[in-house]
């Protein structure tokens, strides 16, 4: 699809930044409006899949190499679990966000929520990208 100019300019060059920005908005605005890590991860992944669809998988892999995607998927779960462990180290229970802030339990809850949503978002977007890459990069049997 690389040679179709209208696709390249309209969908990728014009829409892509807004899709990614919207994903970030959904990610960090999840406490106040509809949204959160799962949705943001899917939208972010879908934006990058759009890039891969228009410019081809090789070009897309040049922007984000495979090892980045695969480690990001694991790092997301580690962030989530890490928040739980930090809460334990601070004297709370696993995933008890209230203890994350020494002065105010409510602030601790906010910190915990934002961090775990970040972990979820990172994992989900990386997994979506990895699945698309695996399916699209497989290729047809030559028989």
């Amino acid at each position: 699809m690389r040679e179709v100019k209208i696709l390249r300019v309209v969908s990728a060059k014009t829409l892509l930044p807004f899709i990614l920005l919207f994903a970030l908005y959904v990610q960090f605005h999840g406490d106040f409006g509809p949204g959160g890590g799962f949705q943001a991860g899917v939208i972010f992944g879908a934006g990058l899949i759009l890039h891969a669809l228009v410019f081809g998988l090789n070009e897309s892999r040049r922007v984000i190499p495979e090892w980045v995607i695969e480690s990001a998927a694991a790092v997301g779960v580690l962030i989530y679990g890490g928040v739980g462990v930090v809460a334990m180290l601070k004297g709370g229970k696993f995933l008890e966000y209230g203890v994350l802030d020494a002065h105010d339990r409510v602030h601790g809850q906010h910190t915990g929520l934002i961090l775990i949503e970040l972990g979820v978002g990172v994992t989900v977007s990386a997994v979506m990208l990895a699945i698309y890459g695996a399916l699209a990069g497989r290729g047809r049997l030559s028989t």
Binding site: D31, F32, H110
Partner: peptide
Amino acid sequence: EEFKIPNAVTAVLGS
């Protein structure tokens, strides 16, 4: 009371 955030779904989901 416990979260002071408007979106109940996020609070239940995360906490």
